[in-house]
């Protein structure tokens, strides 16, 4: 019991002193997950609008596929990207393995189905009268899409933030493709895994507390957005 209390005490001291190393780890986490999320959103939102508003063959299959990939195990994604980027693999010449770029690629793949799937639900959920009304008013298909995305913005934001939560907490994929190199590819979750393995619980705990705090903040924002969306309706 003592070592838990002692661990927490030292963890709080570490957080209060927030040294350059700890700060670097936190910033890298935010940078990697943030960039991955941005890329996933830039592709995912327009794509989900297309899938939601247009009719085409195999539409149901694609939606099911997206929903399945929402639960993609990070280690499998890590393994897959690892094999592609390794020197022995097809993209080895790009020398991307064990760099932050490789981590961003892996996390983008993890975030994409979540963003696409949740945005798709939000877009499909928009009252069909809006689509009809804007079409009657002479909107082009592109303008219709913009109107509907605007209307579904709360749901879309929820999807994006849910994906961010998953990325921040993810360890399997980024450990495999990033390699946990100090000051270069070492992020919060991989540090926690490593420090726990070393038997150094203080830093692991400190990062755990920070990670939970960020998570809490993200979820508070999510709650706020969702509440605003409900009130508006």
């Amino acid at each position: 019991m003592d070592f838990i209390i002692e661990g927490f005490r030292k963890a709080f001291i570490l957080i209060l002193n927030l040294d350059a190393e700890l700060l670097g780890i936190i910033l890298l986490s935010l940078k990697v997950s943030g960039t991955a999320l941005l890329i996933a959103a830039l592709i995912g939102i327009p794509l989900s609008a297309v899938i939601g508003l247009k009719n085409f063959p195999a539409k149901g299959f694609i939606i099911s596929l997206m929903n399945t990939f929402m639960g993609l195990p990070p280690v499998v994604v890590g393994l897959f990207i690892f094999m592609l980027l390794s020197r022995a693999g097809p993209f080895g010449f790009m020398e991307l393995l064990y760099t932050p770029s490789a981590m961003i690629i892996a996390q983008t793949i993890l975030a994409f189905p979540i963003v696409a799937s949740l945005c798709h639900s939000a877009i499909v959920g928009v009252n069909p009268i809006i689509k009809q009304a804007s079409m009657t008013l002479g909107a082009t298909p592109f303008q219709v899409a913009i109107t509907i995305i605007k209307e579904a913005r709360y749901g879309i934001m929820s999807g994006v933030i849910a994906a961010l939560g998953r990325l921040m907490a993810e360890v399997g994929a980024i450990l495999i493709v990033g390699g946990n190199i100090a000051g270069y590819t070492r992020v919060m979750t991989t540090t926690i895994a490593m420090e726990t393995g070393k038997g150094d619980f203080e830093l692991a705990l400190a990062l755990g507390i920070i990670l939970l705090t960020i998570s809490l903040f993200i979820n508070a924002v999510l709650y706020f957005i969702q509440k605003k969306g409900i009130v508006k309706k």
Binding site: S86, Y98, N180, I181, R186, G197, K198
Partner: peptide, 18 residues
């Protein structure tokens, strides 16, 4: 100097890639 904080096989793999 790259510190990886991982096992021997992974460390060799990283050295190979780098």
């Amino acid at each position: 100097y790259l510190e990886v904080g991982q096992g021997m096989a992974i460390t060799q793999r990283i050295a190979n890639e780098k």
